[in-house]
């Protein structure tokens, strides 16, 4: 009898596949929110397993801030072609051009918060009733409160104090016209679980996650990549460093770490010895104690 149990990675995989299938069964027009980061790549990989031998029945939706790593866009396009799925792009630049949002001003300006409007617009105009995200509860204290099926009102807002209880594996995705859901199939995975699984399944991920030489400047305790969007400040020097990225966001705000980890095996080893959280190098979370909660309530990922 004892051999009939799953190890923790298989159990997490099974749970995520169950949730993806529930999304497909309960919603009319679900999409996967695809950023090109490892978590959304993982969700896409799990979706492939969930519906095999059928194709993934969801479109990938990418909210494009215009401040991308070129490698991320290339990776996205290759994956879409390989899987034969539809790609929907919501463009922050277009939202700016249309006057839906205004570019932030000042020295730490980013397009991070602007994505909320573009995301909600894309959800509305494409009549999406469930957007599947790669959010994990271990990432951040507001995300620790997320349900697998998370309700959004007709303004796209999250009300963390008034969520539907989620009991056993019974997921309630019922909603009224205009409302939508966010689904988080990898809620229970930690950063370490994600890496262990990517290694086990040998999932391909953007080269940015592996150690490589790059021109960077040291800012806010991490190595920010040099790009056309980066304005050098006084006293900042461009250096050439061997770095890799632990998470991928906009090129303007994603800090790299010095590293020699150039294989999945070395990354797993490195991450397991890390003494800082993954989002510790993300300036979008550093703005205030409740930066993530505030954005999430408005409709952020």
């Amino acid at each position: 009898m004892s051999k009939y149990y799953l190890n923790y990675l298989d159990e997490l995989e099974s749970e995520a596949i169950y949730i993806l299938r529930e999304v497909w069964a309960q919603f009319e027009n679900p999409v996967i929110l695809f950023s090109g980061g490892k978590d959304s790549i993982l969700v896409t990989h799990l979706a492939k397993k969930a519906f095999y031998p059928s194709k993934i029945p969801f479109a990938l939706m990418h909210v494009d801030t215009g401040h991308n790593f070129p490698e991320t866009i290339q990776f996205r396009d290759d994956l879409v072609e390989k899987l034969g799925v539809k790609l929907i792009v919501g463009s922050v630049q277009e939202s700016i051009n249309n006057g839906r949002v205004a570019e932030e001003k000042g020295k730490n300006a980013t397009r991070n918060a602007l994505q909320i409007t573009t995301l909600l617009d894309a959800i509305e105009s494409n009549k999406v009733d469930c957007a599947i995200g790669g959010g994990r509860r271990d990432e951040e204290k507001a995300r620790a409160k997320e349900r697998f099926f998370s309700h959004r009102d007709d303004f796209g807002q999250w009300d963390p104090k008034n969520q539907r209880p989620e009991l056993w594996n019974l997921l309630n995705g019922k909603h009224f016209e205009g409302e939508h859901f966010r689904a988080f199939p990898i809620s229970n995975w930690t950063e370490m679980d994600v890496w262990n699984y990517i290694k086990r399944e040998n999932i391909s991920i953007p080269s940015l996650y592996f150690a490589h030489e790059r021109e960077v400047v040291f800012r806010n305790n991490s190595w920010i990549p040099v790009s056309e969007y980066l304005k050098l400040e006084e006293g900042e020097n461009v250096e050439n460093k061997k770095i890799r990225f632990r998470t991928l966001g906009d090129i303007t705000i994603t800090g790299g770490i010095e590293s020699d980890a150039d294989t999945l095996g070395k990354i797993v080893q490195e991450v397991s010895a890390m003494r800082k959280t993954e989002r510790g190098d993300r300036s979008d979370d550093k703005r205030s104690e409740t930066a993530m909660e505030d954005r999430k309530k408005q409709g952020y990922f």
């Binding site: 509860r137 620790a144 409740t290 909660e293």
Partner: peptide, 27 residues
Amino acid sequence: TDGLKDEREQGITIDVAYRYFTTPKRK
């Protein structure tokens, strides 16, 4: 184990929160 803004301000837990840890034996 602090979570949402209101929870920190009031020093209480309002909703279920999930925490994770791993030892060499189990997750």
